[in-house]
Computed example of a mutant assay.
Amino acid sequence: MSYEGQPKKSGWGELGHKWITAIAALVTALTGAGFFIGRSSAPDARPVAPATVTVTAPGAAPPAGTGTTGAVPVNADPAVYWSGELEWGKFNLDLNPPNYTDGEYTQALGDLFYVDGKAQLASWKKGGSPGKADCASAVDADGFNQTRFTKDNHICGRTAEGRIFRLDVTSTGNTVRTQVIVWNK
């Protein structure tokens, strides 16, 4: 029954093509961003730039008006090859900063880290945060080409070139983030 002066109701037959066009545009945009296909078309990861700290030696103030801050990079520790945060894709931790290379890389996939190449991984099974010697011992005892992880895990490893590293898992899910430290040989 239709009443004079009331707007006519529209159904799928009249608006369906507009909805289909809108949904197709959304799917196309999300696919281009790598949303549906495991981010394979999106960038693998973004290393975070190292932070700086201000260091002032006791009793040694800079001369007035020089404007120096004494900033020293956090990676100034001679034992550390590279450290920072990584959003996981495929990384070669022998590169400084880590980057993707075919053949030698570590990758996060689901709840699994795995390596392609000569590198090895081991989950830290004790309490606390392992240091370089702890990680080297863990890899010597349990090193393999893959290991499962959850948030707050520590994963130890040895790169193809022999550098010991530790991954501290800070977030999981669609995006896996870790704090990484790679020690010099």
Rank of each mutant, 00 (worst) to 15 (best):
V139Y: 07
D140A: 15
L121Q: 08
R158H: 08
T150Y: 05
A71L: 14
G89L: 12
C156Y: 01
R177K: 15
A57P: 12
N92L: 05
V115S: 05
R163T: 01
G157I: 14
F113K: 02
D102S: 10
P50W: 04
T170D: 14
V53A: 02
E87Q: 11
S2R: 09
G32S: 02
N99M: 10
T69Q: 14
Y105A: 14
F165W: 08
W82T: 11
P50R: 09
A64T: 07
G110E: 07
N153C: 00
T69M: 13
R158N: 13
G16E: 06
K185V: 14
L112W: 10
I155R: 07
G143Q: 12
G84M: 05
S10E: 09
A22H: 03
V180S: 11
H154W: 09
F35R: 04
T170F: 05
V55I: 14
G38W: 13
D134M: 02
G65S: 04
A33H: 04
L30Y: 02
T175H: 00
R158C: 13
K125F: 00
N174H: 00
D94S: 12
F113A: 07
Y114T: 06
G65T: 01
W183P: 02
T178H: 08
R158S: 15
W82L: 03
G128L: 00
R163G: 01
A24S: 12
G89K: 04
D44P: 06
S40W: 13
G89P: 06
N153P: 00
S41W: 07
F35N: 04
S41E: 15
